[in-house]
Computed example of a mutant assay.
Amino acid sequence: MTKPPVSDERRPANDGPKAAARNRTALVAAAREIYAEHGLDAPLSAIARRAGVGQGVLYRHFPDRDAVAGAVLEENVRQIERAAAAPDATSESVLGVLTWHLTESAAFISLLCVDGTGRGSRNLAYATALSERVERALDGHLPDSVGVPLRETSDLMLAVAMVSGAVTGPTREQRERRALAAWRLLGVTVGPVHPFNE
């Protein structure tokens, strides 16, 4: 048996854990984009392709569809928690970060509207826990002056759910415009719409 010829071209070094972390980050970012474009039922193969990895890599990080959605949701919630805990946090700045996540993530909208029916019921306890974390983060960040009476955080969460219903459109810009228009109709001022950057 003859050995195949060895190429003079050097193989790239195996980055090990660095590559794994990079791949996971790319998969979560790709999942957020794919979910925003096609909803939560988008094929996992589309997420792997968008991330530039094989499906085997996706399954090494996330054993099933719910695990992928959970990773996206966890990142959404973590950013809102960090925005709310920032020393210079205002209701406007926190709502700006929350609105960015509404316009970027169909999975996040589903989380905030979880009611125990339909698709959300498969992991209802997990979704409820994440939704409660968002509610705790918003606690103490009620807008000061609004057109409708928001007396407590649960009122604000209802307003968030109402705004999320307006977040439709094929582009992020259209979804953002609609979200901001919905906040205006509720008399709520929202700060710049962007992800939270520490």
Rank of each mutant, 00 (worst) to 15 (best):
T2K: 14
T2E: 14
K3E: 10
P4S: 02
R10H: 09
R11M: 09
A13G: 10
N14L: 11
D15Q: 14
K18P: 02
K18C: 03
K18F: 03
A19L: 03
A19T: 00
A21N: 06
L27R: 06
V28H: 04
E33C: 03
E33G: 03
I34M: 08
H38E: 07
H38I: 01
D41K: 14
D41Q: 12
D41W: 02
A42S: 11
A48C: 01
R50F: 08
A51K: 05
V53G: 00
V53Q: 07
Q55K: 04
L58Y: 06
L58Q: 03
Y59T: 00
Y59W: 04
F62A: 08
F62L: 02
P63H: 08
D64K: 03
D66N: 14
A67E: 04
G70V: 00
A71M: 05
A71T: 07
V72P: 01
E74A: 02
I80P: 05
E81T: 00
R82S: 14
R82N: 11
A83G: 09
A85P: 11
T90S: 10
S91D: 07
E92N: 03
E92D: 09
L95E: 11
T99E: 13
W100F: 13
L102R: 08
A107R: 12
A107D: 07
F108R: 11
I109G: 13
I109P: 13
L111R: 05
L112G: 03
L112E: 02
C113Q: 14
V114K: 04
D115M: 00
T117H: 03
R119V: 06
G120S: 14
G120P: 01
S121P: 01
S121K: 10
R122H: 12
A129V: 07
A129G: 04
L130D: 00
L130R: 15
L130P: 06
E132R: 12
V134L: 03
R136H: 10
R136A: 07
A137P: 13
L138A: 00
H141V: 06
L142Q: 02
P143V: 01
G147P: 10
G147Q: 02
V148H: 09
T153E: 00
S154K: 06
D155V: 05
D155T: 08
L156I: 02
L156Q: 07
L156S: 06
V160N: 13
A161D: 09
A161Y: 15
S164M: 12
G165W: 07
A166L: 06
V167N: 07
G169Q: 07
T171G: 05
R172D: 05
Q174P: 04
R175F: 02
E176T: 06
L180A: 10
A182K: 08
L185K: 08
L186R: 12
G187Q: 04
T189R: 15
T189W: 12
V190Y: 08
V193F: 14
P195Q: 12
F196N: 09
F196P: 11
E198Q: 12
